[in-house]
Lab assay of single mutants.
Amino acid sequence: EEWMVEKALMVRTGLGARQIESYRQGAWIEGVHFKRVSPSGESTLRGTTWYNYPEINKFIR
């Protein structure tokens, strides 16, 4: 699984929702560690946020 939603990321990493938000707003790079995608497939600020687990795992190492 490369891309996953927040709940799956929480299960895989043990991070809480606030921790994920903090990383997203600070250290993680949009387009690398996470992306927002609307149902139409376009990038957007209001779409579902998807997280790239392999890239996040590399960051944590």
Rank of each mutant, 00 (worst) to 15 (best):
E1N: 11
E1S: 10
E2D: 11
E2C: 10
E2R: 07
E2S: 07
W3I: 01
M4F: 05
M4G: 02
M4S: 02
M4Y: 04
V5G: 14
V5E: 15
E6V: 12
E6W: 05
E6I: 14
K7Y: 13
K7D: 14
K7W: 12
A8M: 14
A8Q: 12
L9A: 02
L9T: 02
L9F: 04
L9W: 02
L9G: 00
M10F: 04
M10P: 02
V11I: 13
R12W: 09
R12V: 11
R12S: 07
T13A: 04
T13F: 05
T13I: 05
G14D: 04
G14Y: 03
G14F: 03
G14N: 05
L15A: 01
G16R: 10
G16D: 15
G16T: 15
G16V: 10
A17V: 10
A17L: 11
R18V: 11
R18D: 15
Q19R: 05
I20C: 02
I20N: 01
I20H: 01
I20R: 01
E21V: 07
E21H: 09
E21F: 07
E21W: 10
S22T: 12
S22D: 12
S22I: 14
Y23M: 08
R24G: 03
R24P: 01
Q25F: 07
Q25D: 11
Q25V: 11
Q25G: 08
Q25I: 11
G26D: 12
G26C: 13
G26W: 12
G26N: 14
A27K: 08
A27F: 10
A27Y: 11
A27P: 12
A27E: 10
W28G: 00
W28R: 00
W28M: 02
W28I: 00
I29A: 06
I29K: 08
I29N: 04
I29F: 05
I29V: 12
I29W: 03
E30A: 05
E30I: 05
E30R: 04
E30W: 04
V32M: 05
V32E: 03
V32C: 04
V32G: 01
H33C: 02
H33Y: 02
F34S: 01
F34R: 01
F34C: 02
F34M: 03
F34D: 00
F34W: 14
R36D: 11
R36G: 06
V37C: 12
V37P: 06
S38K: 10
S38C: 12
S38N: 12
S38G: 12
S40T: 12
S40P: 13
S40F: 12
S40A: 13
S40R: 06
G41E: 11
E42T: 10
S43D: 13
T44V: 09
R46E: 15
R46P: 15
G47A: 13
G47I: 13
G47P: 13
G47F: 13
T48P: 07
T48D: 10
T48L: 09
T49S: 04
T49K: 03
W50M: 13
W50R: 04
Y51T: 00
Y51N: 00
Y51V: 00
N52I: 02
N52G: 01
N52S: 05
N52F: 06
N52K: 02
Y53F: 11
Y53S: 03
P54H: 11
P54M: 08
P54Y: 12
P54A: 10
E55N: 06
I56S: 00
I56G: 00
N57F: 13
N57M: 15
K58H: 08
K58N: 09
F59Y: 07
F59H: 05
F59D: 03
F59P: 01
I60P: 02
I60K: 03
I60C: 06
I60N: 03
R61S: 13
R61T: 14
R61A: 13
